[in-house]
Amino acid sequence: MNPFKKLTIFIASALALGCSSNSIPKGVTPVTNFDAARYTGTWYEIARLDHSFERGVSRVTAEYTLNPDNTLTVTNKGYSDSKQKWRQATGKARFVSDTSTGHLKVSLFGPFYSDYIVFELDEKNYQYALVSGQGPDHTYLWLLARTPTISEPLKQQLIDKAKAAGFDTQKLIMPQQF
Protein backbone atom coordinates (compact mmCIF):
# COMPACT_ATOMS: atom_id res chain seq x y z
CA MET A 1 0.00 0.00 0.00
CA ASN A 2 1.20 3.49 -0.85
CA PRO A 3 2.90 5.06 2.23
CA PHE A 4 0.88 8.25 1.91
CA LYS A 5 -2.34 6.24 1.74
CA LYS A 6 -1.26 4.50 4.96
CA LEU A 7 -0.67 7.92 6.50
CA THR A 8 -4.09 9.12 5.36
CA ILE A 9 -5.76 6.03 6.87
CA PHE A 10 -3.86 6.60 10.10
CA ILE A 11 -4.87 10.29 10.21
CA ALA A 12 -8.51 9.51 9.63
CA SER A 13 -8.50 6.72 12.21
CA ALA A 14 -6.68 8.81 14.80
CA LEU A 15 -9.03 11.71 14.32
CA ALA A 16 -12.09 9.49 14.42
CA LEU A 17 -10.96 7.79 17.60
CA GLY A 18 -9.61 10.95 19.18
CA CYS A 19 -12.70 12.93 18.30
CA SER A 20 -15.42 10.43 19.02
CA SER A 21 -17.28 12.70 21.44
CA ASN A 22 -19.55 15.28 19.93
CA SER A 23 -18.35 18.33 21.80
CA ILE A 24 -16.67 21.54 20.83
CA PRO A 25 -13.68 22.30 23.06
CA LYS A 26 -14.47 24.61 25.97
CA GLY A 27 -13.60 28.19 25.07
CA VAL A 28 -14.03 27.57 21.34
CA THR A 29 -17.02 29.04 19.50
CA PRO A 30 -17.43 28.60 15.74
CA VAL A 31 -17.56 31.85 13.80
CA THR A 32 -20.87 32.96 12.39
CA ASN A 33 -21.43 34.73 9.07
CA PHE A 34 -19.03 32.18 7.56
CA ASP A 35 -18.85 32.34 3.77
CA ALA A 36 -17.58 29.10 2.24
CA ALA A 37 -17.03 30.73 -1.16
CA ARG A 38 -14.67 33.28 0.40
CA TYR A 39 -12.91 30.53 2.38
CA THR A 40 -12.02 28.62 -0.79
CA GLY A 41 -8.51 28.74 -2.17
CA THR A 42 -5.12 28.11 -0.61
CA TRP A 43 -4.31 28.45 3.09
CA TYR A 44 -0.79 28.12 4.54
CA GLU A 45 -0.12 26.52 7.88
CA ILE A 46 1.61 29.14 10.05
CA ALA A 47 1.48 27.18 13.32
CA ARG A 48 0.08 23.92 14.67
CA LEU A 49 0.07 21.70 17.69
CA ASP A 50 2.21 18.62 17.16
CA HIS A 51 0.65 15.41 15.84
CA SER A 52 2.29 12.26 14.60
CA PHE A 53 0.52 12.58 11.23
CA GLU A 54 2.15 15.97 10.56
CA ARG A 55 5.49 15.37 12.27
CA GLY A 56 8.42 16.23 10.03
CA VAL A 57 6.24 17.94 7.45
CA SER A 58 6.89 21.48 6.26
CA ARG A 59 5.45 23.73 3.53
CA VAL A 60 1.95 22.64 4.56
CA THR A 61 -1.02 24.00 2.63
CA ALA A 62 -4.71 23.28 2.48
CA GLU A 63 -6.70 23.95 -0.67
CA TYR A 64 -10.49 24.28 -0.39
CA THR A 65 -12.87 24.11 -3.34
CA LEU A 66 -16.61 24.71 -3.00
CA ASN A 67 -18.83 22.06 -4.57
CA PRO A 68 -22.37 22.63 -5.95
CA ASP A 69 -23.87 20.73 -2.97
CA ASN A 70 -22.22 23.14 -0.46
CA THR A 71 -19.57 20.65 0.57
CA LEU A 72 -15.90 21.47 0.19
CA THR A 73 -13.16 19.43 -1.42
CA VAL A 74 -10.08 19.59 0.82
CA THR A 75 -6.56 18.90 -0.42
CA ASN A 76 -3.85 18.90 2.23
CA LYS A 77 -0.28 18.95 1.02
CA GLY A 78 3.06 18.99 2.80
CA TYR A 79 6.70 18.23 2.23
CA SER A 80 8.20 15.29 4.14
CA ASP A 81 11.61 16.54 5.18
CA SER A 82 12.93 13.06 6.01
CA LYS A 83 11.73 11.45 2.76
CA GLN A 84 12.36 14.55 0.69
CA LYS A 85 9.08 14.28 -1.16
CA TRP A 86 5.60 15.77 -1.20
CA ARG A 87 2.66 14.09 0.54
CA GLN A 88 -0.95 14.83 -0.29
CA ALA A 89 -4.40 13.79 0.89
CA THR A 90 -7.74 14.80 -0.60
CA GLY A 91 -11.05 14.58 1.20
CA LYS A 92 -14.27 16.43 1.73
CA ALA A 93 -15.87 18.68 4.32
CA ARG A 94 -19.52 19.18 5.11
CA PHE A 95 -21.23 21.68 7.36
CA VAL A 96 -22.44 20.44 10.74
CA SER A 97 -25.51 22.66 10.81
CA ASP A 98 -25.88 25.66 8.54
CA THR A 99 -23.45 26.98 5.94
CA SER A 100 -23.03 30.30 7.76
CA THR A 101 -21.42 28.68 10.82
CA GLY A 102 -17.72 27.78 10.66
CA HIS A 103 -18.23 24.27 12.02
CA LEU A 104 -17.57 21.48 9.55
CA LYS A 105 -16.81 17.77 9.56
CA VAL A 106 -13.84 16.72 7.44
CA SER A 107 -13.13 13.28 6.05
CA LEU A 108 -9.83 12.36 4.47
CA PHE A 109 -10.72 8.68 4.38
CA GLY A 110 -14.03 6.91 3.96
CA PRO A 111 -16.73 7.29 6.55
CA PHE A 112 -14.49 8.79 9.26
CA TYR A 113 -15.20 12.47 9.93
CA SER A 114 -13.58 14.82 12.41
CA ASP A 115 -14.54 18.31 13.46
CA TYR A 116 -13.05 21.36 11.81
CA ILE A 117 -14.03 24.42 13.82
CA VAL A 118 -13.10 27.88 12.55
CA PHE A 119 -13.15 29.96 15.75
CA GLU A 120 -11.26 33.05 14.62
CA LEU A 121 -11.41 34.50 11.14
CA ASP A 122 -10.52 37.73 9.41
CA GLU A 123 -14.11 38.31 8.40
CA LYS A 124 -13.28 41.37 6.30
CA ASN A 125 -10.65 39.83 4.00
CA TYR A 126 -10.42 36.12 4.95
CA GLN A 127 -6.64 36.43 5.37
CA TYR A 128 -6.17 34.37 8.58
CA ALA A 129 -8.01 31.77 10.63
CA LEU A 130 -7.68 29.74 13.82
CA VAL A 131 -9.03 26.21 13.48
CA SER A 132 -9.67 23.66 16.19
CA GLY A 133 -10.51 20.01 16.16
CA GLN A 134 -13.09 18.44 18.43
CA GLY A 135 -12.93 17.33 22.01
CA PRO A 136 -12.41 18.79 25.44
CA ASP A 137 -8.63 18.30 25.51
CA HIS A 138 -7.67 21.10 23.07
CA THR A 139 -5.41 18.71 21.13
CA TYR A 140 -5.90 20.03 17.60
CA LEU A 141 -5.06 23.60 16.63
CA TRP A 142 -3.98 25.24 13.40
CA LEU A 143 -3.18 28.86 12.60
CA LEU A 144 -3.75 29.38 8.88
CA ALA A 145 -3.12 32.32 6.56
CA ARG A 146 -3.44 33.17 2.90
CA THR A 147 0.26 33.93 2.72
CA PRO A 148 3.24 31.77 3.78
CA THR A 149 4.11 34.26 6.53
CA ILE A 150 2.27 36.84 8.62
CA SER A 151 3.46 39.74 10.72
CA GLU A 152 4.75 38.94 14.21
CA PRO A 153 2.12 41.18 15.88
CA LEU A 154 -0.71 39.37 14.06
CA LYS A 155 0.81 35.97 14.84
CA GLN A 156 1.07 36.91 18.53
CA GLN A 157 -2.51 38.21 18.56
CA LEU A 158 -3.76 34.88 17.18
CA ILE A 159 -1.58 32.86 19.56
CA ASP A 160 -3.00 34.90 22.47
CA LYS A 161 -6.54 34.19 21.23
CA ALA A 162 -5.76 30.44 21.08
CA LYS A 163 -4.25 30.54 24.58
CA ALA A 164 -7.35 32.31 25.92
CA ALA A 165 -9.44 29.52 24.36
CA GLY A 166 -7.50 26.92 26.39
CA PHE A 167 -4.79 25.74 24.00
CA ASP A 168 -1.23 25.10 25.20
CA THR A 169 0.42 27.59 22.89
CA GLN A 170 3.85 26.87 24.37
CA LYS A 171 3.75 23.67 22.31
CA LEU A 172 3.03 25.32 18.97
CA ILE A 173 5.21 24.31 16.02
CA MET A 174 5.96 26.92 13.37
CA PRO A 175 6.61 24.88 10.21
CA GLN A 176 8.82 26.33 7.51
CA GLN A 177 7.01 27.44 4.39
CA PHE A 178 10.05 27.77 2.14
Rank of each mutant, 00 (worst) to 15 (best):
T149H: 13
L15M: 15
F119Q: 00
K163C: 05
D98F: 01
T42F: 09
T65F: 01
I9Y: 11
I24S: 02
K155E: 09
T61A: 15
T61I: 15
I117S: 01
L15K: 14
A164L: 12
K155T: 04
D69Q: 11
S52D: 09
S80R: 09
P153D: 07
A37V: 03
G27P: 06
I9D: 08
T29E: 10
Y64M: 01
W43G: 09
L130W: 13
D69C: 09
N76Y: 07
L130V: 12
L158F: 11
T73P: 00
C19R: 08
F109P: 00
L130I: 09
L66V: 11
T40Q: 11
F4N: 10
F53H: 06
T169W: 08
L154Q: 02
D35Q: 12
S132W: 07
Y39A: 11
T40K: 05
V31M: 04
G102C: 03
K105P: 01
N125C: 11
F10Q: 06
P111R: 14
F167A: 01
Y126L: 06
A12T: 01
K124R: 12
G78D: 08
L49K: 05
M174Y: 15
I159D: 07
F109T: 01
M174V: 11
K161T: 15
W142Q: 02
S114C: 12
A165T: 02
A12E: 00
L130G: 12
Y39W: 13
F178G: 08
M174C: 13
Y140T: 12
G41R: 06
Q134K: 13
W142H: 01
S23Y: 05
L143T: 00
R38Q: 14
I159Y: 09
K26V: 14
I117K: 00
T90N: 08
S23V: 14
V57W: 04
R94S: 13
